[in-house]
C-alpha cells in the first residue's frame, strides 16, 4: 500500500461550526479511503490566517481549502459572488441550481483556470444572511453606525445603509462582541448564531435577510489534485457533495426551529416596504459589479434570468 497520501485541508469555519458543516464528511472520507489517503482538517486561521489562505494553497502550504471566494480574497473577478452576494438567492437550493444547471460552474472553472496553482472544485450552499445584534433593529435607520462583522462584499453593500463593516478573524468574533469592537454580526442565519455561541453575546435577530444562501466552495492545490488517483478524486467529490447535502437540511431545519423555539434571541423585522428599498439598491449594486468585467456581466445576467424564471414559475418558487 505504501505511505498514505496526506492532505491538510483548512476550512474558513471555526471549530464549533466545522463540527457540522465539514467534519462529518471528512471523517467519512478518511474511513472510506481505507488508509490510502488521510485528510487532516484544520479550522479558521488555525495554520494560516484566512487572508493568506489562497496564497498558502497556491504554494502547497495547505493542500485544500473550504471557503467562500470572497473571504479568501480569491484573485478572480467572480470572487465577489462568493459568500453573500446581496439578494442573489432566496433559498439554499438556488445555489446548486445556479451552479449545476444555469452555467455558473463553467464560469467558475473558466475563471480559476486563469489562476495558476489552484483548482476550483465545487460550490454549495450554506445559510441565509441575517443580522444578530446587541440592540434591536426595527428600521433601516437602526443600522446606521453599527459596527458589524460581515463578509467583504456584503459589507461594501451594507455600508450604503450606514453599516460600518468590520473584518476580524472568525474565532475572535464572540470576544470582539464583548470587548466592544463590534455591535453586531451579519454573517449567518440563526442556526449558526446558536451553534457557535453568538446567540449568547447578542440579543436580537433580524428576520430580514440580505441573501437567502451563502455560496462557498472547495479548492485544492492543482498539483496535489492532479496527482490523486481517479478513485480518490471520485471519493473526494462524493465527500464534498455529502457536505453540501448535510448543510442543506441542517440549516433549513435549524433556521425554522430556532426562530420558533429558540430562547436566546428576540426576533425583530424591518417592514417589507422599507426592506424593498434595500433590494432595489442591491439591483443597482449588481449593475455596478457587472460593469467591472465581461465575466461578471455574464454572472449577473444569469442571476437576473434565474430570478425572472423563478418569478414566472410561481409556487413553490415564489409566492408573490
Amino acid at each position: 500500500a505504501g505511505k498514505p497520501i496526506k492532505w491538510r485541508l483548512q476550512t474558513y469555519a471555526g471549530a464549533a461550526l466545522a463540527e457540522h458543516v465539514i467534519k462529518p464528511s471528512i471523517d467519512a472520507f478518511n474511513k472510506a479511503a481505507n488508509g490510502e489517503m488521510e485528510i487532516e482538517l484544520y479550522f479558521a486561521d488555525q495554520l494560516v490566517p484566512t487572508g493568506e489562505l489562497f496564497r498558502a494553497m497556491q504554494r502547497g502550504t495547505i493542500d485544500a481549502v473550504q471557503s467562500d471566494d470572497d473571504s479568501i480574497a480569491a484573485p478572480v473577478d467572480v470572487s465577489v459572488f462568493g459568500g453573500y452576494f446581496p439578494f442573489a438567492s432566496r433559498y439554499s437550493l438556488d445555489v446548486p441550481a445556479l451552479f449545476n444547471h444555469w452555467g455558473l460552474k463553467e464560469i467558475w472553472e473558466e475563471a480559476y483556470n486563469e489562476v495558476e496553482g489552484v483548482t476550483w472544485l465545487s460550490a454549495g450552499a450554506w445559510d441565509p444572511c441575517h443580522f444578530a445584534t446587541k440592540d434591536p433593529i426595527n428600521s433601516l435607520a437602526d443600522l446606521k453606525g453599527k459596527r458589524v462583522f460581515t463578509f467583504p462584499t456584503a459589507g461594501r453593500f451594507l455600508s450604503r445603509f450606514g453599516v460600518v463593516p468590520v473584518t476580524l478573524p472568525w474565532e475572535d468574533i464572540e470576544v470582539a462582541m464583548q470587548t466592544g469592537e463590534l455591535d453586531g454580526i451579519a454573517w449567518s442565519g440563526i442556526t449558526e448564531d446558536y451553534t457557535v455561541g453568538w446567540a449568547d453575546v447578542t440579543n436580537y435577530f433580524l428576520t430580514n435577510n440580505i441573501s437567502g444562501a451563502w455560496a462557498g466552495s472547495y479548492f485544492a492545490n492543482s498539483e496535489r489534485w492532479d496527482e490523486l488517483p481517479e478513485h480518490l478524486k471520485t471519493l473526494f467529490k462524493l465527500c464534498m457533495d455529502s457536505s453540501h447535502y448535510y448543510r442543506q437540511h441542517w440549516y433549513w431545519a435549524g433556521e425554522a426551529k430556532l426562530r420558533t423555539q429558540g430562547t436566546k434571541m428576540k426576533l425583530t423585522s424591518i417592514p417589507d416596504e422599507e426592506w424593498a428599498t434595500v433590494e432595489a439598491e442591491a439591483h443597482k449594486f449588481w449593475d455596478e459589479i457587472a460593469a467591472k468585467s465581461d465575466r461578471n456581466a455574464r454572472v449577473v445576467k444569469i442571476l437576473k434570468d434565474y430570478n425572472a424564471s423563478m418569478d414566472k414559475a410561481g409556487r413553490p418558487y415564489r409566492y408573490s
Partner: peptide
C-alpha cells in the same frame, strides 16, 4: 513571496 503575490494580483485586504 507574499509581497510578490500581493503585487501580482493586486491583493486587497478581505475587509470592506
Amino acid at each position: 513571496s507574499s509581497t510578490e503575490y500581493a503585487l501580482k494580483y493586486g491583493e486587497q485586504s478581505y475587509s470592506a
